[in-house]
Amino acid sequence: MSAPAYKTALIVGAGSGLSASLARQLSKAGLKVALASRSTDDLAALVAETGAKPFACDASQPDQVERLFAEVEAAVGAPDVAIYNASFRTRGPFIELAPGDVEKAVAVTAFGAFLVAQQAAKRMLPNRHGAIFFTGASASVKGYAKSAPFAMAKFALRGLSQSLARELQPQGIHVAHFVIDGGIRSDRRPVPADRPDSLLDPDAIAQSYLDVLRQPRSAWSTEVELRPWVENF
């Protein structure tokens, strides 16, 4: 069975870096792209480059996520690809963590993913067609010292993805979780001269998402780990 054709992608947690690379790759592949972010002020250049449609949304708020999908559906069509790339991270000694920051980390990173996936699945299930991808991290599989909130949130995200894969994939919806195990290169985080290839290239990560999206359904991946070849793990 050949890989299904996708038409419209929604990237939640859009900005520079990986989400921008995803927007470019998906646009080049012929998909219409919608970008969702708490603020669209910084998306103008990416919108101009890709032709994507920007939408303001706090993914941790159920009413805003419901409105987002209604607006995207009206503007470009119901998304048959949903990529959740939003997260919030707070660090520090455990006994010094602010409960409000911990709550926000779980709300943005995990609860928001649930809200987006639920709205996406409601639109995909009638057609038995779609893809829901989640961006994980090293913290999805191992909790680091002084990073309990991020580990809590990313573990929850991975659990959500595993549960949805078992429920939705037999109904035609491809669910996959991407463990980004390493730092991502950016203008603010260039590759050190003495450690070439030590940071992940966001374009290379985006290419892997596209490769998974194109998989024939007889051999779907549900989790992919990506790290630089020089990274210890």
Rank of each mutant, 00 (worst) to 15 (best):
Met1Gln: 15
Ser2His: 11
Ala5Lys: 12
Ala9Asn: 02
Gly13Met: 08
Gly17Glu: 00
Leu18Gly: 02
Leu18Lys: 02
Ser19Asn: 06
Ala20Arg: 07
Arg24His: 02
Ser27Met: 03
Lys28His: 14
Lys32Trp: 00
Thr40Cys: 09
Asp42Gln: 14
Asp42Lys: 15
Ala44Thr: 11
Glu49Thr: 14
Pro54Cys: 03
Phe55Asp: 06
Phe55Ser: 07
Phe55Arg: 05
Cys57Ser: 06
Asp58Gln: 01
Gln61Leu: 11
Pro62Gln: 00
Val65Leu: 05
Ala74Ile: 01
Ala75Lys: 10
Val76Ser: 13
Asp80His: 08
Val81Trp: 05
Asn85Phe: 01
Asn85Gln: 05
Ala86Gly: 09
Ser87Trp: 10
Phe88Pro: 15
Arg89Asn: 13
Arg89Asp: 14
Arg89His: 14
Thr90Gly: 03
Thr90Ala: 07
Gly92Met: 12
Gly92Asp: 13
Pro93Asn: 11
Pro93Glu: 11
Ile95Thr: 14
Glu96Ile: 12
Ala98Trp: 08
Pro99Gln: 04
Gly100Ser: 14
Asp101Thr: 10
Val102Glu: 09
Lys104Ser: 08
Ala105Asp: 11
Val108Pro: 11
Leu115Arg: 13
Ala137Ile: 00
Ser140Pro: 08
Val141Trp: 10
Gly143Ile: 09
Gly143Cys: 12
Tyr144Gln: 15
Lys146Gly: 10
Pro149Val: 07
Phe150Met: 13
Phe155Ala: 03
Phe155Ser: 00
Leu157Pro: 15
Leu157Ala: 07
Arg158Met: 15
Gly159Trp: 07
Gly159Asp: 01
Leu160Gln: 04
Leu160Arg: 04
Gln162Ala: 14
Leu164Phe: 05
Leu168Asp: 09
Leu168Trp: 06
Leu168His: 08
Leu168Tyr: 02
Ile173Phe: 01
His177Val: 04
His177Lys: 04
Val179Glu: 11
Ile180Cys: 08
Asp181Pro: 07
Asp181Gly: 11
Gly182Ile: 05
Gly182Thr: 04
Ile184Ser: 08
Ile184Tyr: 06
Ile184Asn: 08
Ser186Gln: 05
Ser186Cys: 00
Arg188Trp: 15
Arg189Gln: 14
Pro190Thr: 02
Pro190Asp: 10
Pro192Val: 09
Pro192Asn: 02
Ser198Trp: 08
Ser198Phe: 05
Ser198Asp: 01
Leu199His: 11
Asp201Pro: 08
Ser208Leu: 13
Ser208Val: 13
Tyr209Lys: 00
Tyr209His: 03
Leu210Tyr: 05
Val212Tyr: 06
Leu213Met: 06
Ala219Thr: 08
Trp220His: 01
Thr222Cys: 08
Thr222Ile: 11
Glu223Lys: 03
Glu225Tyr: 07
Leu226Asp: 02
Arg227Met: 12
Pro228Phe: 03
Val230Met: 06
Glu231Trp: 15
Asn232Lys: 14
